[in-house]
Amino acid sequence: MPLKVIQFLPSLRGGGVEVGTLELAKALVEDGHESIVVSAGGPMVERLTADGSTHVFWDLGKKSPLTFRHIWRLRKWIAAQDAHILHVRSRMPAWLVYLAWRGLPEGCRPHLVSTMHGLHSVSAYSEIMCRSERLIAVSETVKQYIAKNYPQTDMGKVQVINRGVSPEEYPWGYQASAQWQEQWHNEFPELKGKRLICLPGRLTRLKGHQFLLNLMSSLKSQFEDLHAIIVGGEDPKRLAYAEELRQKVLDLGLADKITFCGARSDMREVYSQAAIVLSLSSKPESFGRTSTEALSMGVPVVAFDHGGVGEQLANLFPQGRVPCFDEEVLIKTVTQVLESGTLPIKNTLYLKEEMLEQTLAVYKELAGRS
């Protein structure tokens, strides 16, 4: 039976949630279903519509009491769509969709699905994600977070569907082309012939750059060919931190050991140059896309053992787990990985196709109850 599925999120300006929305929308169309995405728009709309989905412009993500004025019109619009599934992926749109959906006659409602993408601050505002008929947790970490912080939630409706990457996009053992490597070394000549440690992510304090600086200070004499790259753009709201970080590199005498590469759209190629990819976030992540991408390529990941990243390492590269914030163990672990050449287990757990198939199965199961 062809389904009609409507996904709701704040915008399509880029990010993990947005990428997942587009991947699912494309899978729906390819499986013969009708896919609609409601958002405030953004650069990714063109790709969405090129893949066969319909985009409806509606700003339901603005955190303002005025946004609730859309509820009556949204309820009327949902009723006219005759959809099978409404899928909410963010808290503010979830509130509006839930209130609009609840006001429909019970026998005429589409099924309501939500995905908990993040470990949000615990509050009544965040609890809205638990009110759907089926709640998808993007990792076991998120499921445990729901059970601990929202004990009133029926855990029987919570299903773990791990986020996944495509082995075609991030293939095991991938090597960047000679042309790409030439351009890379032209841009960053100091990296040629070096063993690289890569810390991906925006320049924000949460990403744990200080741990990297301390690590490089400790290892620079032991591994003369070791060089760190910080790959991520500056956060416009935290420019002072970016400047502070660059100054610390100079103060510690690490200017010849650390390179800021800025935001990159060629992360697959960047990972292929790395001996190790780090994840040193001070707060646990719900999943961790960059670590999954690197592990899928066979690149060792060393990370603090918490959240979704710790979960991935337990399954694919337990040698890379470090007790949170333990710098002594971090140094020892990086040293052991560099010296041993140990590689991750091949990724068979965090696959995009499985993620999409499991999500479509949820839709079909719910629609079959109608």
Rank of each mutant, 00 (worst) to 15 (best):
W180N: 06
W180Q: 14
S177Q: 08
Q181T: 13
G201A: 00
H209L: 09
G173A: 01
W180I: 12
N214P: 04
Q210Y: 06
G201F: 00
K192A: 11
P189S: 00
G173H: 01
R205D: 03
N214Q: 12
P189Y: 04
W184Q: 08
G208L: 08
K207S: 07
R205F: 12
P189H: 03
A176S: 13
L203M: 12
L213D: 14
L196N: 00
R205G: 03
K192Q: 12
Q210N: 03
G173F: 03
E182F: 05
A176F: 06
R202P: 03
L203Q: 09
R202W: 05
R195H: 06
T204Y: 08
A178Y: 10
F211H: 10
H185M: 09
F188W: 15
Y174G: 04
P200S: 02
L191V: 01
K192I: 00
H209I: 13
Q179P: 11
E187A: 14
Q179C: 10
Q179N: 15
G208M: 03
W180C: 12
Q210M: 08
G201P: 06
I197P: 01
Q179A: 15
A178C: 09
R205H: 10
I197L: 06
H209R: 09
E182Q: 11
Q181C: 15
N186K: 13
G173Y: 00
P189Q: 01
L199G: 00
L191E: 08
K192M: 04
K207C: 08
W184E: 05
P200F: 01
Q210A: 02
R205P: 02
K194G: 04
P200L: 02
E182T: 08
L206D: 15
L191H: 05
L203D: 10
Q179Y: 12
K194F: 09
F188Q: 03
G208S: 06
L196G: 01
R202F: 09
L196Q: 02
L191I: 00
R195A: 05
G193E: 06
F211A: 15
L199P: 04
R202H: 11
K192E: 12
C198R: 01
A178T: 14
R202G: 10
T204R: 08
Q210K: 04
Q183D: 10
K192W: 06
C198V: 14
T204V: 15
N186E: 15
F211S: 14
W184I: 02
A176P: 01
G193C: 05
Y174I: 01
R202A: 11
G173C: 04
L206S: 10
E187Y: 03
E187T: 13
Q181W: 11
S177D: 11
A176R: 08
W172C: 07
T204H: 04
C198D: 10
W172D: 05
P200G: 06
T204A: 09
N186T: 14
I197V: 15
P200D: 04
G193R: 06
G173T: 01
F188K: 08
E187D: 05
W172V: 05
A176Y: 05
Y174R: 07
